[in-house]
Design a protein around this nucleic acid. Sequence first.
DNA 1: CCAGGATGCGTGTAGATACACGTATCTCAT
DNA 2: ATGAGATACGTGTATCTACACGCATCCTGG
Lengths: 147, 147
Amino acid sequence: MKQANDRDTADYMAAAGCFCLASRQAARKITRLYDSYMQEAGVRITQFTILSQLMLRGDMPIGKLATILGMERTTLTRNLGPLEQQKWISVKAGEDPRARMIGITAQGRGVVRRSFPFWSKAQAHIGKLLGADGQAALKLLESRNLG
Amino acid sequence: MKQANDRDTADYMAAAGCFCLASRQAARKITRLYDSYMQEAGVRITQFTILSQLMLRGDMPIGKLATILGMERTTLTRNLGPLEQQKWISVKAGEDPRARMIGITAQGRGVVRRSFPFWSKAQAHIGKLLGADGQAALKLLESRNLG
DNA sequence: CCAGGATGCGTGTAGATACACGTATCTCAT
DNA sequence: ATGAGATACGTGTATCTACACGCATCCTGG
């Protein structure tokens, strides 16, 4: 105990139960697992997620997509860069000239189609690791409004 | 339904229940909330987490710390950069000259001490948002071995 | 019509994340 | 002793994340 002299170390023990550490740790591990599966498909899970959301929900402005993904708008803007470069998404002005409507291209759909089986394997793998209660826990977190 | 023609769209609906999206979404939102509280303390939650772990567990090599944090070793190496620059941690070779022992400095302890109240507020805030079941869900995920 | 607040975005800056690859050191069986 | 495999790391590259700030456009009360 090198920090035995630290009078209030006991207080800091609380930090061991940090919700932030728990959530990020889980997210990192889960992301690595998905990415390891997606790698063969040549697409990252972040990108796959964006593309599949566009595929499922149709075109939408950046802000709305960011909300759906629980991501900062400016973060999403950066993430769209590589996707646009690959021509997997299209960007055009909406009725409101301020809005930038994002849509998935035919090529983007192809990417989703081809990479879906890999995503599916990753999903199955992590589902097994999580177990029924772990999956339920994640769904609960998803349903919570965390701001 | 702009993608009504897409024959297998139904299959892709599964992507809506992606465990990866759920975990990352939660982690992003939670991280933003913690960081907004920590900002006043001049330290990021990522950094606070690293420092407090060192404070609680004492010096250790990079690899071990990375495992504890559920982080890639190389990621941790990058994250240690700013901390070392601020002199919040010390780096020295261990008995095994390959290993780099990381330790928290007196200044680093001061940072943890001063920023702890802000962390505590964030923890309380998110605890309320999560609710008892949400907290339990997060603890369950933390206990799961996800690789 | 027309300020003034609200809304939708991009960029500068800075840090967080991780894979592929390469280096140095250790360990152990021969 | 020594060579092969294991271990502990750093770096190059690329992406992900988000705050502060600023710009353009929309909308609404006067």
